[in-house]
């Protein structure tokens, strides 16, 4: 398999795992074991859009019990005698090899996955940010040997891209260091938040400059939070920013 594999460097390792649970998109070549009518093929493909049942394959890392997964879309790109090229958008944890096999079963001729390329995992897509190992190697060379960091800047994305899919809460400078020390977030520290903040959902806490501070669990919905004057509204789960980057509040006010 080839395609989108976001790699978190050093500190980013802490949060890159969150994209595992986001939607995926693949481009897949399915090999049919006998030719089929294209109308029939389209009907069968359409049948798999929506909620499907899958038992994880033998070679998998999870418990092999039947589970449901959602297929958002299947687009038929090309269809020759034995090969079918499709683009599939689906929920995390959907097995493409199984999907190809099941499409073959419903067609009545049998089929298997021939090639697979991932074109999206949540916030990361097959776009101008996608780079090859060769490009990484060249950018490192330009930086180390030619003292030109421009290429490296271009191929490395800020860690904040890894939380782009999450609901967001922006906080005041004075609230940052307390969170960096593991404190929970209270209403007075909030400047603004996105409307998709939901009770019990994972949220990203950010500074006004856009720096990732921490990930936390929202204790209330966005509208509820907006109506409050005080109280803890986010339980801090994973601190990203290091303590001491933003000033501790007690130094500011007390004059000590």
């Amino acid at each position: 398999m080839t395609g989108v594999l976001p790699v978190g460097l050093a500190n980013s390792t802490k949060v890159i795992g969150n994209v595992i649970h986001t939607m995926k998109e693949y481009v897949m070549v399915i090999q049919l074991h006998a030719p089929v009518d294209e109308d029939k093929l389209r009907k069968v493909i359409e049948y798999f859009v929506g909620k499907i049942y899958q038992r994880p394959p033998l070679r998998s890392s999870v418990k092999r019990v039947i589970r449901t997964r959602r297929i958002h879309y299947i687009e038929l790109i090309e269809n020759t005698e034995r090969y079918v090229l499709v683009r599939v958008g689906c929920e995390a944890g959907t097995y493409m090899r199984k999907l190809a096999h099941d499409i073959g079963l419903l067609l009545g001729v049998g089929a298997h996955m021939r090639e697979l390329r991932r074109t999206r995992t949540g916030p990361y897509k097959e776009d101008e940010t996608l780079v090859t190992m060769q490009e990484v190697s060249e950018a490192l060379y330009m930086w180390r040997e030619m003292h030109d960091e421009r290429y490296l800047r271009k191929i490395i994305l800020p860690v904040e891209t890894a939380i782009a899919h999450l609901p967001k809460i922006i906080i005041r400078d004075t609230a940052v260091d307390a969170i960096a020390h593991g404190a929970n977030l209270a209403v007075p520290g909030i400047v603004r938040l996105t409307n998709d903040v939901k009770k019990d959902s994972l949220v990203a806490i950010l500074t006004l400059k856009g720096e990732l501070v921490a990930l936390g669990k929202a204790l209330k919905n966005a509208e509820e939070i907006a109506g409050l004057k005080k109280g803890i509204v986010v339980k801090t789960k994973r601190v990203y920013i290091k303590p001491g980057i933003y000033p501790p509040v007690w130094k500011k006010g007390s004059g000590k």
Partner: peptide, 25 residues
């Protein structure tokens, strides 16, 4: 204090960076 994420010094940018890598087969 702090910095815009896209203005981090290169060393910091690396340590707080993600590569959208095209995995080779």
């Amino acid at each position: 204090y702090g910095t815009l994420p896209y203005e981090r010094p290169i060393q910091e940018h690396i340590l707080n960076g993600v590569i959208n890598l095209d995995k080779p087969p």
